[in-house]
Amino acid sequence: MRSACGRGSDAQEYFDGAMDAEKSREFRLHLEGCPGCRARIEGYGAIGAALSDLNPGPVPAVLHERLMGIVPVAAPRRVRIWAAAALLAASSVLFWLMFMPFSAGTGMPNPGDGGLLSPVRELNRIGGMVGENVESVASSVRDFAEVDLDIGAAVPLEGGTLAAVFAAMVAATAFVNAAAYRRYRAAARGPAAGGMTERRTT
């Protein structure tokens, strides 16, 4: 039944409790003589009653798990991306060290300079220096502690070793990225590896 009084909007405010006390009192008086407004308010109540029956129950456990898994998976992903970036940068430096020609004396790359050292030989020289330092530290420790440490001779780093380290770093970078991406995809689908199959809860 439609109200012809033109106070439909007031009926809504009254029903929603959005009217001040005085206006509310006045509208109650109006309601007594207006069957249209009464019907409208009853209708609003019936809609509310029907909607309150539409209750999905508690949040399904599978959904809760998925939601709680969004950040614990995603946050380490960010860390892994940084780790991957650092590995990549380190790999690039190694690559540069291995393949750029070095000018004798300065250590700066200088293509076209006749006095170039082989980069691998240069690296071997650096590795030898590091090894000598290790031996020197070991000797000091030996003197101080009066123990017979057998560190052995300085072990120079070789070009092949560096190449292997470089390859390992590239592989680690790829692995870290792939693992992060896999976990991210799994998180987007659900906590289980085959998250998409876990949707049905009833």
């Binding site: 539409l54 209750n55 999905p56 508690p58 959904l63 949707r199």
Partner: peptide, 26 residues
């Protein structure tokens, strides 16, 4: 989660859709 799930269910009238929607929201 409960508020979003309830709202999604009442928008979709379907539990599976509500689960998907809630996950998408978060």
């Amino acid at each position: 989660e409960r508020m979003v799930y309830n709202f999604a269910f009442r928008m979709s009238f379907n539990r599976e859709d509500a689960i998907d929607m809630t996950q998408e929201v978060f």
